[in-house]
Write a protein that binds this DNA or RNA. Structure first.
Lengths: 152, 152
DNA sequence: CCTTGTAGTCAGGCTACCTTACCAAAGCCG
DNA sequence: CGGCTTTGGTAAGGTAGCCTGACTACAAGG
């Protein structure tokens, strides 16, 4: 729903940079020997404890339904990066646990994000990258304050 | 695929702010009497000329297939914001033309984006919003230079 | 004309979500 | 203890937003 100068459209810019970040990350992770991972798998790893976590706990943190989340876990499991084991403390529950390879990929992924940000800082200045993050956070706070969350 | 401090994760921040922008925009447009529009309809309006445009032209500018684009046009047409009329100059082609209401919504949408940015500027400073845009553009250029486009 | 190219549609498929309905174990609670 | 409710997870089916491949209708050049 906009605009003459599309290369300058904030929505497009935000989307592009997000895409750039994700693509570059998964490109490097794949190149390092951990192929098959897609952006949507990020939700599995994002909050995943190295010792494993409850499925529904991860789903809730990700803001997804258990079903949707469970599907991603199944995919990532099929790729060999995690396994689902019965929770010894609760017969209903299952723990999502990274395999050794999964743990490596997890750590590498986080590393790559840090690397990328460092590279950007070298290219355009540490303070500008910091300012980017800070500005984004402030705008988000501002906007969140404006539209009260859907009543909970 | 990350990270401890998730509120600070750049990917999440970029996504959040993009969402904020889109949601607030469509909220205001709907509140102003133009309901039913969704973010995915943006592609129809984004490059739409006030006098109408060719479907395939819009599709190409949007980086989508004609089929996918055509579906969005059909949706937006069902909402009464555009019509598809045969192109008088080419019997194969059709022109996507905004209805009067569509034209109003189109202009309002662009207005709202400008308003929002101005409001942000008032809240956190003009130069910071400008810096945000500029930094995003630079990072995108940097990253685009790094990964050469899929050979064309 | 007849061939080749272009504009748009139709059919079908995939991914990433959702809702509704269910099962099975856990946790009260009388 | 036996039943009721809650909770963890799965199953089935649906939707939005994209894709590819196959097709039709018209255009345009020999």
């Amino acid at each position: 729903m906009s605009a003459i100068a599309t290369d300058q459209h904030l929505v497009a810019l935000l989307e592009s940079v997000k895409q750039d970040l994700l693509e570059e990350m998964y490109r490097r992770v794949a190149a390092a020997g951990y192929p098959g991972l897609r952006p949507s798998h990020g939700c599995v790893f994002r909050y995943l404890d190295v010792d494993g976590s409850r499925l529904s706990e991860l789903a809730e943190k990700s803001g997804m339904t258990k079903q949707a989340f469970g599907e991603h876990v199944a995919n990532v499991e099929a790729l060999g990066y995690v396994v689902r084991i019965p929770d010894p403390e609760d017969g209903r529950a299952k723990r999502v646990v990274p395999t050794p390879r999964g743990r490596e990929a997890l750590i590498l992924g986080r590393q790559v994000f840090a690397d990328l940000e460092r590279e950007w800082a070298e290219a355009i200045g540490v303070e500008r990258v910091a300012a980017l993050r800070e500005t984004l956070r402030e705008i988000h706070r501002l906007q969140a304050a404006r539209s009260p969350l859907p009543a909970y």
